[in-house]
Write a protein that binds this DNA or RNA. Structure first.
Lengths: 343, 343
DNA sequence: CTGAAAGCGCTTACAG
DNA sequence: CTGAAAGCGCTTACAG
């Protein structure tokens, strides 16, 4: 069941190696009767061709790498990543690719990664999950290997690197506009780390929405935080002094922390302060709190990332692709308004 | 930087292919001066050997697969998996292996997996995360491929398959004994699904502890649940009618749900009902609730799993290995006792 | 439609 | 210590 080679199948089927190869690769130019006989032998023996030999001659491994750099320290706590991996896995399976996973737990590990990633005959392409300041040099290194590279998350420096992201600016804008349209006058925001493009873009969406309205942009209404629940709690406590009547939190976890802080201060959501979050991953608390939020299509995002990378692999001209995916505002109760998804 | 072959390096260094190969593979029998010159050329050119060619001739890919079968539906919500992957990644990096990840989102996907997993020249071995009833046939199929196979989690049918697990029985026993020793008289348990060995083993630990004491084993004190918070909540509500004074929950998430149910009923933890959980993953709630629990070394577990698989790969005699790892009781406040880690 | 032959880029006895 | 040669198991022009 294992030491079989193309040669052996050929002998048993009474044909040549070439013909067996053609059958296996579903090529035309094989008579039906021969094809049938070969297929029979293959099924009988359980033969499957040697992947390394195939890769060597075809220069294609049908394997892609997913790199989670050191900056992604929330890999172990944020439910975002399993969902991302789910989408990527699904797409890999669909397109008959295999996924190699590289988790750079430490800086040192990350440095050991590059030679392995770039060794020829191993990966057809790489998805780098990023969007963080600290990954600029990694992106450059990866680019230098000439491997097809797709960054998942908008990189700080966009030039000449392909990336896929959700449209964070538009999404945040949509969320904040929802608060404005429905009468909130003192809208504050809790941002993610401003060392990352996710953090920056969602903040800029807030800025755009406020700037595009009759309201004044107040710098103190912008509190930087870290995407965690406890971070949201702390940021909210600071914001409370400014008496906001609405909060746009750049992640659901921070929104949850903010709601806790609001309640601890004796105020009510949404009566005193409306809250809108971001993510809408299936976390129990999101539903429990009836959180209005931006739903980002994480699984589809992962799927699309693989599709985009495959395009890059197939298309060896050095095209620069930028893909932005849309999001959806999910109106629940925390923003204080009835359902209104039409924009 | 990419189209380079061994041949090219050899030419530039003025030696033969064989010699360059020896240098790259750190073999002896190369004079220092020649080695130095070759190394120089390699560094200068940034050459790295073609992985497929190496694999083809050496019959080793230095890649292992991690399979998360369909039964692992909690992959997307349970923080256990990212931590497991962390440990596995660390070990892979340490031993210069690459990790290929196979997430079987659906049954159909799972079936498409087998041919890919078993194709020669691709994986040196496989870790199957399991312990569920439904995976028996997958284990058998995988065994038939003759790939070195390590099951992570005790399989239902242990014969002739290598596995690694934590000692769930001993751990649960330890947890329940802690409650007994400290005076609780009506100790109930909320189990995981009894279709999985994790669920079964932790229940049996409970049985052992109660059986080994002067207390009576009461079947109604055993409530089957599903490892989730809401499951724990529901199970606890049923148990409350029986007026237990302590609960051993087979996961922290269930313990959290149980505590919520206890409080909702107007009772106090630990005064009225002591609670001990299982896992001690870094979830904020565990600390917040001061949950006494069994700490399982997930990251180390993943690391050890890789080490064990590598042994299996290196040692091609068909040895059957069974590895059980120890756990630690972490005493916090939910069990109602002061710190006492000495057992 | 089919087969013989070359070649993908390495490693590894073998001979010296 | 070093090199020439065979071979790992495939795919793919090429010729027929």
């Amino acid at each position: 069941m294992s030491a079989l080679r193309l040669e052996d199948i050929a002998k048993k089927a009474g044909v040549s190696r070439s013909t067996v190869s053609r059958v296996i690769n579903n090529q035309p130019n094989v008579s039906d009767s021969v094809r049938k006989k070969v297929l029979e032998v293959i099924n009988l023996t359980g033969f499957s061709p040697n992947a390394a030999a195939r890769t060597l001659v075809s220069q294609r491994s049908n394997t892609i790498g997913l790199v989670l750099p050191h900056s992604v320290s929330t890999f172990f706590t944020d439910p975002y990543y399993p969902h991302l991996i789910k989408g990527i896995s699904q797409a890999c399976n669909h397109y008959d690719f295999t996924l190699a996973l590289f988790v750079a737990g430490t800086k040192e590990y990350q440095e050991k990664l590059l030679p392995r990633l770039s060794s020829k005959g191993f990966l057809d392409g790489v998805i780098l999950q990023s969007g963080h300041h600290a990954d600029q040099s990694l992106i450059l290194d990866l680019k230098q290997t000439n491997l097809p590279l797709l960054v998942a998350g908008r990189p700080l420096n966009e030039e000449e690197v392909c990336f896929i992201d959700i449209d964070n600016v538009a999404a945040a804008e949509k969320a904040v506009r929802h608060l404005i349209i429905n009468g909130r006058k003192r809208i504050a925001t809790i941002t993610g780390p401003l060392t990352s493009t996710v953090g920056l873009d969602r903040m800029n969406g807030y800025r755009n929405a406020i700037g595009g309205s009759s309201q004044k942009l107040i710098d103190d209404f912008i509190q930087e935080s870290d995407f965690t629940e406890i971070g949201g709690y702390k940021a909210m406590n600071k914001l409370l002094e400014l008496q906001p009547d609405a909060i746009f939190a750049a992640s659901d976890m921070m929104a949850i922390g903010a709601i806790r802080a609001i309640r601890d201060s004796g105020r009510e959501v949404p009566k005193d302060i409306a809250v809108v979050g971001f993510d809408d991953l299936p976390i129990p608390a999101v539903n429990e709190l009836q959180l209005t939020t931006i739903r980002q299509p994480v699984v589809q995002f992962g799927f699309k990332a693989v599709e985009t990378l495959i395009e890059l692999i197939e298309n060896d001209s050095p095209i620069v692709k930028k893909v932005l995916m849309d999001t959806e505002l999910i109106v629940r109760k925390s923003c204080g308004f009835i359902k209104n998804n039409d924009w």
